[in-house]
């Protein structure tokens, strides 16, 4: 389960930030991109589990879904999850789950057929916000 690895990395990165800043962190928000089809509940569970015993044990972890926005650089149409990912088979979605940038290997622009796709948002998992204690 590579979600556990990612979550461990996130908890460590946020803890490092708290240490560097010398401040307590009250909340932090993790944006989960749609493209990679992560299970939001799983990420939340893992975050709460992994942060136990860490420097940010008491910080509240919030999860938000980041909408996928993929630009076709040929015709300038913008596509979302239901256009590019939903039509794919389980196996293909699994590959994009690991490496979201591979969307252009598996999907084309539904309008013009181009693979010149650029991910504008919603690729993977990132920390989008950190709130420190004053």
């Amino acid at each position: 389960m590579h979600e556990l690895v990612i979550v461990s990395g996130i908890v460590e990165a946020v803890s490092d930030l708290a240490r560097r800043e010398g401040k307590r962190i009250l909340t932090f928000t993790v944006a989960v991109g749609e493209l990679a089809s992560f299970d939001k509940n799983l990420i939340e569970e893992l975050l709460n589990e992994v942060k136990k015993g860490s420097l940010i044990e008491d910080a509240e972890a919030r999860i938000e879904i980041e909408r996928a926005e993929v630009l076709c650089k040929s015709c300038e149409a913008i596509w979302g999850f239901s256009d590019l990912i939903e039509p794919l088979g389980e196996n293909e979605r699994e590959m994009i789950h690991f490496l979201p940038e591979l969307v252009s290997s598996f999907s084309k622009c539904p309008k013009c057929g181009s693979r010149d796709l650029e991910i504008r948002s919603g690729r993977g998992i990132r920390v989008s916000y950190v709130e420190f204690e004053e």
Partner: peptide, 16 residues
């Protein structure tokens, strides 16, 4: 991951 499919990605995407 791509099993022989093309990988039409830009520099930024390769870095990711």
């Amino acid at each position: 991951f791509v099993e022989g499919r093309p990988i039409p990605v830009s520099g930024r995407e390769k870095r990711e």
